[in-house]
């Protein structure tokens, strides 16, 4: 009985955080700010849902652990995709006017390319 209450609480927490991630994606105004909401809220949300499913399997069905695999995979890949999307924003100068300056001779890696290899952000992609 107590374990059911625990499962319900974790399920609701997971659904809530997944929803908050998407609400943030829709509500926030600048592209970089939008990056914050889904990459994290969703990972914790899906993590909680998987945890609830695992507890339920141990309590009511045959024990199962492979939810851990999905969880670990999501937690490892979320920062990498977030980093790639941030690089896209920097490359397309979406929010970049205020990038902090660096000491002379270095440049942020995404903007730093030899002049002949520089790829300008194309206007065609939308």
């Amino acid at each position: 009985m107590l374990i059911n209450v625990l499962i319900v609480v974790i399920l609701i927490i997971g659904a809530f955080f997944t929803l908050v991630g998407s609400v943030g994606l829709l509500k926030l105004k600048s592209p970089m700010a939008r990056l914050h909401a889904p990459t994290k809220a969703s990972t914790l949300g899906v993590g909680s849902l998987l945890l609830a499913s695992m507890i339920d399997a141990f309590a009511h069905r045959e024990p199962s652990l492979h939810e851990v695999l999905v969880m670990a995979f999501l937690f490892v890949t979320a920062p990498i995709s977030a980093n790639f999307i941030a690089k896209v924003h920097i490359h397309r100068r979406s929010n970049v006017d205020a990038l902090p300056p660096l000491p002379e001779g270095t440049e942020w890696a995404t903007l730093d390319a030899p002049p002949d290899q520089k790829i300008e952000p194309s206007e065609g992609l939308r």
């Binding site: 991630g21 994606l25 939008r34 889904p38 990459t39 999307i85 979406s94 992609l125």
Partner: peptide, 10 residues
């Protein structure tokens, strides 16, 4: 375009 990629990821 970054927003669209992010939305697909979500």
């Amino acid at each position: 375009i970054g927003d669209r990629i992010l939305a697909l990821d979500t």
